[in-house]
């Protein structure tokens, strides 16, 4: 069994019995996709909602919700997943710092979550579970064997969805 690490603005796929893990999700969103029949899991660490907000063109596709999720679906298909069988789980999108003035950049966590949901909807992918919002960082680990997503927060222990 191997644990594959996903960095910020990064994505990875895994087959049973491997696991995928990303650490320190703040306002970023961890999008996890799973094909139960093939036991193939994919994870993207999404940083921003929309690639059209980007200021330059040499963009990392894995940074934005609207480009990362389709890329992840393609990669999962490449290793044998059926895109029509995919289900999703979401974690992250927290607001790490609170400010008096609430401009758009500061509200990035909730915007990331909304964008991910929108993109999943466009691809007709059902969201089975989510643990989003709040003000705590999360570390998540997806087991490609069981499809269980483990979520760890500082001072709040570990939960499974």
């Amino acid at each position: 069994m191997e644990i594959i690490k996903v960095g910020m603005a990064d994505a990875a796929v895994a087959k049973s019995p491997d696991k995928i893990r990303t650490t320190g999700l703040g306002s970023c969103v961890g999008v996890v996709l799973y094909d139960r029949n093939k036991k193939i899991a994919g994870m993207a660490h999404v940083m921003l909602p929309d690639s059209t907000l980007g200021k330059n063109l040499e963009t990392n596709l894995l940074k934005y919700a609207d480009t990362a999720i389709p890329t992840l679906i393609n990669r999962m298909e490449e290793i044998g997943a059926n895109s029509r069988m995919l289900v999703a789980k979401l974690a992250g999108g927290a607001q790490m710092f609170t400010f008096l003035s609430q401009n758009d950049t500061m509200r990035i966590g909730p915007r990331n979550v909304e964008a991910c949901k929108q993109v999943l909807k466009e691809h007709s992918i059902q969201i089975l579970a989510e643990d989003t919002g709040g003000s705590s960082g999360r570390t998540i680990e997806m087991d490609a064997e069981t499809g269980i997503l483990q979520i760890r927060m500082v001072n709040q222990g570990t939960k499974e969805v």
């Binding site: 320190g24 703040g26 306002s27 940083m47 940074k63 927290a94 705590s136």
Partner: peptide, 23 residues
């Protein structure tokens, strides 16, 4: 604003503005 949490989760917040410009 003060927060106590995982370093990665906190610092990534400061990089968002940059995320829109480059990697």
């Amino acid at each position: 604003s003060l927060a106590i949490d995982m370093a990665g989760a906190l610092l990534s917040y400061g990089l968002i503005e940059l995320g829109q410009a480059g990697d």
